[in-house]
């Protein structure tokens, strides 16, 4: 029971990170109907930017951890958002009304380019950082197993919850959110009614990238390392999460992220670590067979 509780906590934390990335996928898919393959790499860039900012802040003598974290968060979000914006401008906007496979291939190309860019710019080796946030709580003990809840885990979950709430508010209550939903339904009509479609789509990419940057930073804090290749696997799993939750749905993305996180941790804990990814992907396939539009996705009615 204690072991299970510990895995539950670990799974939820990992799931939160996946969920944050998945939101970026789901939003972009909802509005432009394409898989933003480069999103996993945006997450990786976010991790790197957070790492470098952190190094600089420490070296100029900042020691107060909350201030460091806040500054790192802001810089990472802003800079990664600019990456998201640029990627859309260069690789997707020219192809917006093109046929479906062209933007997808362009996105895959962008993903390769970003991965390799990080490798060339920052080297191929893993970048470790010393633990920034330490400490935690022992929740309870049973059968000699102590269930731990670390401060960093609390930070990850709280940040995710706050961002999710903020984001839900943004989409449902603000002008931008309304524009986004309008573009999702019908871009031409939205444009006729005075919605700046280009700007709205750009903003979607910017927000998605900012959230991915948060995920990247959380990953850095939680695992204490980044490397240029981490975007690929995390990206696939986050996209899996988005699909699992029902693509286009924000709560779905979060739910899918948590599911994937839990499946992965539980599988590693009780079965085999080697096959954790196989488990995650297999469950995706099984879910899609029975729920072709994911857990919370709207069923697609075929008009005849």
């Amino acid at each position: 029971m204690a072991y299970f509780s510990q895995q539950l906590i670990n799974g939820l934390v990992l799931g939160s990170i996946y969920g944050l990335i998945a939101i970026g996928y789901t939003m972009v898919y909802g509005i432009v109907g394409m898989i933003n393959f480069a999103h996993g790499d945006i997450f990786m860039i976010g991790g790197f930017v957070a790492l470098i900012t952190f190094l600089i802040l420490v070296s100029i003598g900042l020691t107060f951890v909350p201030v460091i974290l806040l500054l790192v968060l802001l810089v990472a979000m802003a800079m990664t958002a600019l990456y998201g914006w640029s990627v859309e401008r260069i690789a997707y906007r020219p192809l917006r009304h093109s046929f479906r496979l062209a933007p997808m291939l362009s996105a895959i190309g962008m993903s390769f380019a970003l991965t390799n860019f990080a490798q060339v710019a920052q080297g191929a080796r893993v970048k470790p950082v010393p633990p920034i946030v330490t400490g935690g709580y022992s929740l309870f003990e049973r059968d000699g197993f102590v269930v731990q809840l670390s401060n960093i885990q609390i930070i990850v979950v709280i940040t995710t919850l706050v961002l999710l709430a903020l984001f839900t508010w943004l989409v449902s209550r603000t002008r931008l959110g309304r524009d986004m939903r309008a573009c999702e339904q019908d871009q031409t009509m939205a444009a006729l009614l005075g919605v700046d479609v280009d700007r709205t789509i750009s903003m979607t990419f910017v927000i998605g990238a900012a959230l991915a940057a948060v995920a990247g930073m959380m990953y850095l804090l939680y695992y204490g390392l980044v490397d240029f290749f981490m975007g690929f696997v995390a990206g696939i799993k986050a996209f899996t999460a988005a699909v699992l939750g029902g693509i286009g749905s924000l709560p779905g993305a979060m739910l899918g992220g948590l599911s994937i996180g839990l499946i992965e941790t539980m599988w590693s804990a009780y079965f085999s670590v080697e096959y954790k990814d196989v488990a995650a992907f297999s469950i995706l396939i099984v879910v899609l067979i029975f729920l072709p539009t994911g857990l919370l996705g709207r069923p697609e009615v075929e008009k005849v």
């Binding site: 690789a91 192809l95 190309g109 962008m110 993903s111 390769f112 991965t115 390799n116 060339v120």
Partner: peptide, 21 residues
């Protein structure tokens, strides 16, 4: 070697933008 994937990725983007079909 080390720039290969960078160039390849960017070339893919450029080719798609140039000839999506």
């Amino acid at each position: 070697e080390q720039y290969r994937m960078l160039v390849f990725g960017l070339a893919m983007v450029a080719l798609m933008v140039w000839r999506p079909r």
